[in-house]
Computed example of a mutant assay.
Amino acid sequence: MEHVPDAHQDLIAWLRLEQTPGVGNETARRLLARFGLPAQIFAASHAALSELVSPRLAKALLASPPGFQEQIDKTLAWQEQPGNLVLTLADAGYPRSLLEIPDPPLMLYVKGRAALLEAATLAVVGSRNATVQGIRNAEQFSASLSSAGLCISSGLAAGIDAAAHQGALTGPGSTIAVIGTGADIVYPARNRNLAHLIAEGGCIVSEYSLSTPALAPNFPRRNRIISGLAKGVLVVEAAAQSGSLITARMAAEQGREVFAIPGSIHSPLSKGCHQLIRQGAKLVESAQDILEELQFHTKTAISQAQPQASFMEASEAGLLKEISFDPVHMDVLASRTGIDIASLTTELLSLELNGQLEALPGGYYRRLA
């Protein structure tokens, strides 16, 4: 191995522990509890290590992991770039909130404002295939909470996560994106511009070593960090079998509050939220509900603003009254209003463009505001 400055030796030892095949977080913590810092683990004898792990794993610990020098070079070069930081369990800057959870990550790769890791935080999560209203709710709640000073954590996924980050970036609370790849990779690619904005004004965090690709098992696992950094989790929209429910369950296990926004009984994306509410999650209708429950005091006024209605013709206003927040088919609207299909289609399109309603598959519509 090439010589490296002494200042990097501790980080290299942590990286070696992380990279050793067969060593997961639980095994690593047992080794640390017995031997101390990683350097002391690697200074131990095979016999001493074999008292705690299998002889095969003890042998792996005493050997250099495959491709380790390349990972060292990559990590040290990445950390030298402005705004990049690697934190280990032993570092003073490691977020205290994660030390409280059952399975804290050994290392965190941080890009952006690392100080946000100690900020008062709320996680906002939900469906990747969110409705228009769900996107608006996520963005508006996050903007309001950020304006009050709460940082918003989420997972940089499409849909609710992305909307939450975008809303949070508009306020002083800002946002933390916890990702399931290496910190040098943006996934999904469509969120590349958003990731750059978060790196500049917020913070991107990963427990995975650099160049780790998007692997399916890593995304549910990173959810414990999203909730672990936060005082609570807000689920905006979620199907009955949703990854967001995993985050909510982890939050409850970590002793965090769980909040959920209710929706239409006809919407599949409301079923997960309703399930959480039945299980004891707190139903919320405004950002203020969350701030009061968390007893988060702020002098900043919370905006409860809804999307502003544009000017509508009298006929459109009358039509809107016939559309509820539950889906309704255009044939039913034609029957109720007596408007011919051609005119009805025009008025429905106008209301949709004005942000007053959402067109759903199969000729259904529902009101947004």
Rank of each mutant, 00 (worst) to 15 (best):
V125K: 04
S146Q: 12
L234G: 13
F68A: 07
R16K: 13
I179H: 01
S244Y: 06
P21C: 03
E285L: 13
D6C: 10
A48P: 07
S270K: 10
A334V: 01
I176L: 08
S206Y: 03
S324Q: 13
P262E: 10
G180E: 01
F259D: 09
Q241F: 10
A164R: 04
T345Q: 13
S154D: 12
G67M: 08
G338K: 05
A114I: 04
F35M: 08
F296N: 13
R96D: 15
G243K: 01
L76V: 10
Q304D: 13
L150W: 12
V125Y: 03
N193R: 10
F35G: 06
A214S: 14
L357S: 08
I323V: 15
R192C: 09
A119G: 06
A44F: 05
D326K: 08
G149L: 06
A90G: 03
A230Y: 05
Y94G: 02
L37F: 05
Q288L: 14
T346L: 13
M312W: 07
R221C: 00
L349R: 06
K231P: 00
P95W: 02
I41S: 06
L52F: 04
A120D: 15
T75E: 13
S146V: 09
G232L: 07
A230M: 05
L52N: 03
L349A: 09
S50F: 11
L99R: 15
A342D: 14
L276Y: 14
Q288N: 11
V124G: 02
S147I: 02
T88F: 02
A301R: 14
Q40D: 15
L87C: 03
W14S: 01
A39N: 04
D103A: 00
K231L: 14
L294F: 04
S315K: 03
L37W: 05
L37Q: 11
S315I: 02
L276I: 15
E253M: 06
Q254D: 12
L17T: 04
M250R: 10
P188V: 08
D73T: 11
L99V: 03
T346E: 15
A216R: 12
Y109H: 06
S209N: 05
E80F: 09
C273I: 08
P21K: 03
L169P: 05
G202L: 10
P268D: 12
N129F: 09
G318D: 14
D73G: 08
R56V: 13
L99I: 01
I179N: 00
Q40Y: 15
